[in-house]
Each structure stands twice: as structure tokens, then as C-alpha cells.
Computed example of a mutant assay.
Amino acid sequence: MASEVTRFARPPATQRIGVLLLPGFSLLTQASCVEPLLIANQLSGCSLYQVSTLSLDAEPVRSAAQLACIADHALDDAPALLDTLLVIAPSPLPYPLPARLLEWLRQHHARTLGGLDGGGEVLARCGLLEGYRAALPWPRVSAVSQGYPTVVITQTLFEIDRNRMSCAGGTAALDMMLTLIARDAGAELAARVSEHFACERIRLADEPQHVPLRSRLGHAPQSLV
């Protein structure tokens, strides 16, 4: 039952997660990132994740749908000690990135950095993905590969490479966060969180973003394809 609580012999330590929202971010990506963590807390009966949202300043951040999100902290008063810092940005990036943002990201000491949707490109511009595998939205792969040849860019759903993570955005963020929950608190809890969102299954990291038309149409006649 969804209301049952997962029992731990020894609950995992609380993970402090910061989610930086940049203007034009996708609401779907943001929800797919944050809500699995909150449901993991609920279903486990433990504070597995402490999530804080961040913005460039104290002003509300407008999404691509023009809905405003009030963040918990601006960069100037962001928590100094985070286990993971995730950047969610639109793709492609429709504006220049402020110099103070780039500098702040370079100086931040989170154990793990992540970029979701256009957030991966933000990290690449900061030089924070050099030598790492990174999953970016497939329409941006060619351009970003040419601009940042030291980043190993893939068209998979998501990548978790040492202390870097990235995903294509949208529902790929959900699969990435479910994978993290499985790593932190076990596959059973991750499966229950997946069931909460009525997900058929947790997709693997190396599954492709762009599904060929033939695969999408199944056994349709070639003339229709």
C-alpha cells in the first residue's frame, strides 16, 4: 500500500539538496526533480532529503509557462554546505549567463553538481564538466559538443559520472532521481516512489532520448511510417 512506511534498520543520513532555478525553467523538469525526493521522505517516514530552492536574487523566478516560483534562498544567502547542487535552466539558453552566477558555481563546494535540461550547458560554460560524461537535450548535442570538446556529451536520458550528474530534462529527471533514491535508500523505496507517480518502470540511464519513428509506430506499415 502507498501509505505504508518503509522501515530502515539504520536510516540513511539526510542529504542536503539545493535546486537552482534559472528564468524560463521547465515546470515539468522541476517537479520531476523535486517531488520524488519529497515522496521518498513521506514513504520512508524519514528526512532522507532536505530540499532548498535557490534563485539568482530575491525575486520570484518565472518558468517557461510564466508561472512564478518563490525560492527559499537567493545566491547571496544560499546554504554554504550542500551535498548536491542541481541547476535547472531552459534549453537552449535564451540569454547570457550573469558573470556572478558563473563565478558562484565555480566556487561552490557541493559534493555533487548536476545540470538538468539546459542546466548541463550552464555547467559546461563554467568549465565544470570537463572530462565528464553529460546528457544534454538531444537538439543541443551537436552545438554544445563543438563548443566544449572536453565534455563527453551523450544523448542518453541521464548520466551520473562520479560527482557530476545531468539529464535531458522533463521526465528524464524523474528517472534520474529515482535512480538516486535507489542508490541512497534502496531499490524497494525507489520502486514505491515510482508507483506513487504511476510510472510503468524506472528507465535506465543509457536509454536514448530520441526514439526513432519506426519504434514509436510499432508494427505500422512502412508506407504510414
Results as ranks from 00 to 15, higher is better:
77 D>E: 13
114 G>A: 02
121 E>V: 13
64 A>E: 14
136 L>M: 10
131 G>I: 13
94 P>R: 05
114 G>M: 01
137 P>M: 12
119 G>Y: 11
99 A>D: 13
136 L>A: 09
69 C>N: 10
111 R>N: 10
102 L>V: 12
92 P>Q: 08
126 C>S: 09
105 L>P: 01
135 A>S: 14
90 P>Y: 10
149 P>E: 09
141 V>L: 14
123 L>K: 14
125 R>I: 08
125 R>S: 13
137 P>V: 12
93 L>D: 05
76 D>F: 02
71 A>G: 14
136 L>H: 04
133 R>G: 12
144 V>A: 14
149 P>Y: 03
129 L>M: 14
105 L>T: 10
104 W>G: 07
152 V>L: 15
106 R>D: 06
82 L>V: 12
78 A>K: 01
103 E>G: 06
103 E>Q: 08
147 G>T: 14
124 A>G: 09
85 L>H: 07
89 A>V: 04
117 D>L: 09
74 A>R: 07
90 P>F: 13
79 P>I: 05
130 E>P: 01
149 P>C: 01
73 H>F: 15
74 A>S: 15
91 S>H: 07
80 A>P: 08
75 L>N: 07
137 P>F: 04
110 A>V: 04
103 E>K: 03
138 W>F: 15
128 L>W: 02
70 I>A: 12
125 R>K: 15
127 G>S: 14
108 H>K: 08
126 C>H: 04
132 Y>T: 01
105 L>M: 03
135 A>G: 06
130 E>F: 05
110 A>I: 12
102 L>K: 10
152 V>G: 01
145 S>W: 00
71 A>L: 06
73 H>I: 08
87 V>A: 04
129 L>I: 14
141 V>A: 12
91 S>Q: 07
98 P>C: 02
100 R>V: 10
69 C>Y: 13
75 L>D: 07
97 L>W: 05
83 D>G: 03
101 L>Q: 01
64 A>W: 06
82 L>A: 11
118 G>C: 12
